[in-house]
């Protein structure tokens, strides 16, 4: 039995002087898909930002281990190099930085961290174009600057493209379905599913059950007021869809 991929123990964390995560516990093993569902304002995005080390977010107590290492001691780029990936809810636009050059820098940074040689540029661009095509991002879009002029749905496709190029061990999808129509949702979900295998894991953060029809979780956690209040299998998501969060939030 190998060590878990991610272990979060009794985590307390917040932002702007406000404690938002209060006693959070979660263990994710390789090969698993976890879903965290919760109402608006429960602190779902705070959790993903804390895990990725976004400046401004602080941890007051608790432990987070990623592949056995103390995650909280690592810089955001070290976390990424170790294999953590966040598909962001609101990906930022970066004018003047082309997608291909951005991805090439990212891939080579991760390869160099692992002591691997840099990739050949031509091969790399070919690979990015092929992956992009699968996600409905044509060559013209790949040539553009990162997220500049992209619709909400296109941004989510580009997040998924980055994930498929960077091949993380743990991908956190923060509201990966927001801004997506039914067809785009299917494309993104297929992209994510194609990457999932027994060596990596997914943490899907969402309001709605609909994404979980496409990315089927092994575990569903209800997250309210800074911690997990109930854990079940995929049927819990259906129950939530039917009854709403009100019942669970009261349980605390």
């Amino acid at each position: 039995m190998t060590a878990p991929l991610l272990e979060i123990e009794d985590l307390y964390a917040g932002v702007d002087g406000k404690e938002i995560i209060k006693g959070f516990n979660l263990t994710i093993n390789a090969g698993e898909i976890h879903a965290i569902m919760g109402p608006n304002g429960a602190g779902k995005s705070t959790l993903s930002n804390v895990l990725c080390g976004k400046p401004g977010y602080y941890v007051t107590s608790g432990n987070v281990r990623f592949k056995g290492r103390d995650l909280l001691k690592l810089s955001p780029e070290e976390r990424a190099c170790e294999g953590l990936f966040l598909s962001m809810q609101y990906p930022v636009e970066i004018p003047g930085v082309p997608i291909t050059s951005f991805l090439k820098h990212a891939v080579n940074a991760i390869r160099s961290y692992k002591g691997e040689p840099e990739l050949d540029t031509m091969e790399f661009i070919k690979m990015v174009k092929a992956e992009g095509k699968k996600l409905g991002l044509d060559n013209e879009m790949i040539k553009r600057a990162v997220n500049v002029g992209f619709s909400g749905g296109e941004k989510k496709r580009l997040e998924t493209l980055q994930m498929s190029v960077l091949k993380p061990s743990l991908a956190i999808l923060d509201e990966a379905d927001s801004g997506l129509d039914i067809d785009a949702l299917r494309v993104v979900a297929e992209g994510v599913n194609a990457l999932h295998n027994e060596n990596n894991a997914l943490l899907v953060i969402t309001h709605y059950q609909r994404l979980l029809n496409h990315i089927v979780p092994d575990f569903v956690h209800v997250y309210a007021d800074g911690k997990i209040v109930k854990t079940g299998d995929k049927t819990l998501a259906l129950e939530l869809e039917e009854k709403g969060y009100a019942g669970f939030v009261k349980e605390k």
Binding site: G53, K54, P76, A80, C81, I94, A106, A109, I110, L166
Partner: peptide, 11 residues
């Protein structure tokens, strides 16, 4: 923008 790039592994 800086955080976005770092979160992808870029120093």
């Amino acid at each position: 923008q800086l955080f976005y790039m770092q979160s992808r592994g870029i120093s």
